[in-house]
Design a binder for these strands. Structure first.
Length: 568
DNA sequence: GTCCCTTTGAAGTCT
DNA sequence: AGACTTCAAAGGGAC
């Protein structure tokens, strides 16, 4: 078991104690003695890899090894991202919906290999980007060149099914923001040697010279930015020189660092779409730096919300309203799952014929649960950094600011009443008949089994407390099966259930099981069954409904919930 | 044109 | 403190 950094009580809410990789930015933020986590990152990473492999090895000793698909290629198998890509191509040509290597869909994994594509200034050349495009990696549709000069080069994004990146105002990978400070954490490959002055003796992975990865990266303030070494200083030949050319007054060019390296794309993401960003100063951080989370106030807002400004000032309603209109809509930072979804959506869309997001999300949700802890931890870490970036960009922003700015969903009844009513009206109350988007035996739906990571996360109370993915794994076991087969009302209950379950930290979950609704108590036996059934289930939908008995249980509980969607 | 659906997680509000 | 709600992305579908 790796020695994870002591739980520092992340004020950002991330399950830090479960996240193997910490950055010094946290320590700076919290000022808490969290230990020099970063110094041991490589060791931690290595430990985690070994742990994961050990877990897989031990899991493979279970009764289902023969029926489980072969374990994914360890990342070490791909000495170079190119090899990995070749494998990707091969498997895609095979038509299989493979559970990729430890970091599937991580476009920035390519970056290290693109050493030759780096321009002298550390930027990526378009040539490397084309590699992405040919790979049809959803989020790699972004021509790296566009990130450099915002050249709007003909992006093949439009060639690929409305991939998130298509919407990037500047063709930025939505995760590239996080790539910068995460690349050494998660990259299975190696950054360009000429750009990486340090090489980790253990992993052989070149490491940035500056351990600090986050705080240097974020523009805390216009005046301070220039003093901060860039997180990707290792990408820049000259050390000690600020990566960003910060004008005395701070950033004025929206993307001052884009010409320096693609990593600066951290300031954009798909959320930073053209139509969302007003041409004026809206969307700009006080420092002048736009952030993906900033969108134009054009974003629908309920007028009545204007006077409910979180600030609670005492201005007249009119002025408040105007102020509110001027106020850019700063979106919430994406959580781990959202980041994962964003990254994997296009891939799923490409591999499946499904296009409905609801269906894709179901798949992604299951895939998410199928991820190993380390894989999930990666996204938790990304999300945490995203939040950190967000909080640094907008110190005064609160999620409350966006409350009510989106059309509220119907809340016809109090949850408790819903629970009581759900059973009787489950089939008829729903506006839209529940659609089971995941057809049984759908080839593109092989989340849990393809990787066997359900087995990787044995969701014991100890593990549930030990890793970021563990709660998810626990959640998965408890709620995932039903979450795929319930109507919205039931889902709400399940959320309730799972929330209670999670909040109880698995130890006291029994309390949450004593729900007044049979639906709420159902997950337990079902999950128990699933837990074992998964060991022998084929790599498709049966991961959720592992056996005829399980399917029957679901059907009995929700007779009309298994409405399969007509085939395309 | 707007909202729903669907997913998980974070963070808010409410009790 | 715990329960509950809202929002974040996405895009087809329903209205």
């Amino acid at each position: 078991m790796p020695q994870l950094p002591p739980a520092g009580g992340d004020d950002l809410g991330a399950p830090d104690e479960l996240i193997p990789f910490q950055d010094e930015g946290d320590e700076q933020d919290k000022g808490a003695g969290r230990g020099s986590a970063h110094g041991d990152l490589d060791e931690l990473k290595s430990s985690l890899v070994h742990e994961s492999e050990n877990r897989r090895a031990s899991a493979s000793g279970s009764d289902s090894e023969a029926e489980r698909p072969p374990p994914p290629q360890p990342r070490e198998s791909f000495q170079k991202p190119r090899d990995y890509l070749a494998e990707v191509v091969r498997r895609q040509q095979d038509g299989g919906f493979f559970k990729g290597p430890p970091y599937p869909g991580y476009p920035f994994l390519m970056i290290p290999e693109l050493g030759s594509t780096y321009l002298p200034n550390g930027a990526l050349s378009p040539g490397g980007a084309r590699t992405y495009l040919q790979m049809k990696w959803p989020l790699l549709d972004v021509p790296a060149g566009a990130t450099l000069k915002d050249s709007r080069s003909p992006s093949p994004a439009h060639l690929s099914n409305k991939v998130p990146v298509v919407q990037h105002a500047h063709h930025m990978h939505p995760l590239t923001p996080l790539i910068t400070y995460s690349s050494d954490h998660f990259s299975p490959g190696s950054p360009p040697s000429h750009l990486s002055p340090e090489i980790d003796p253990k992993t052989g992975i070149p490491r940035p010279p500056h351990p600090s990865e986050l705080s240097p990266y974020y523009p805390l303030s216009p005046g301070a930015v220039g003093q901060i070494p860039h997180a990707l200083g290792w990408l820049v030949p000259q050390q000690g020189q600020p990566v960003y050319s910060i004008p005395p007054g701070g950033f004025r060019h929206p993307y001052p660092a884009l010409a320096m390296n693609a990593s600066m794309s951290s300031l954009m993401s798909s959320r930073f779409s053209p139509h969302m960003v007003s041409p004026a100063a809206h969307g700009l951080h006080p420092s002048g730096i736009p952030h993906p989370t900033i969108v134009s106030p054009i974003v629908k807002q309920e007028p009545t919300q204007a006077s409910m400004s979180p600030g609670g000032n005492s201005k007249s309603p009119g002025s408040v309203k105007k102020e509110e209109e001027k106020k850019p809509h700063i979106k919430k930072p994406l959580n781990a799952f959202m980041l994962y979804m964003k990254e994997m959506r296009a891939k799923v869309v490409a591999e499946c014929t499904l296009k409905e997001s609801a269906a894709i999300n179901q798949i992604l949700g299951r895939r998410w649960h199928s991820l190993s802890r380390e894989e999930q931890a990666k996204y938790y870490e990304l999300a945490r950094k995203e939040r950190q970036l967000h909080s640094q960009l907008y110190p005064t922003w609160s999620a409350r600011d966006n409350y009510g700015k989106k059309k509220k969903r119907k809340r016809e009844k109090q949850p408790q009443q819903q629970i009581q009513d759900t059973e009787s009206s489950l089939a008829s109350k729903s506006k839209k008949p529940y659609v089971q988007y995941l057809p049984i035996e759908k080839p593109c739906d092989s989340p849990a089994s393809s990787h066997g990571s359900m087995l990787d996360s044995p969701a014991t109370p100890s593990t549930a407390l030990a890793s970021p993915a563990a709660p998810a794994a626990t959640h998965s076991e408890q709620a995932q099966p039903l979450s795929l087969t319930t109507k919205p009302e039931a889902r709400a209950q399940l959320s309730l259930h799972s929330a209670a379950f999670l909040s109880s930290k698995a130890a006291s979950s029994s309390s949450s099981l004593s729900s007044p609704s049979p639906l709420l108590s159902r997950p337990i036996p079902f999950a128990t069954m699933t837990h074992t059934a998964l060991l022998t289930s084929p790599p498709s939908f049966p991961a959720a409904i592992p056996s005829p008995q399980a399917a029957l249980a679901v059907l009995q509980a929700q007779p009309l919930s298994l409405v399969t969607k007509p085939a395309d």
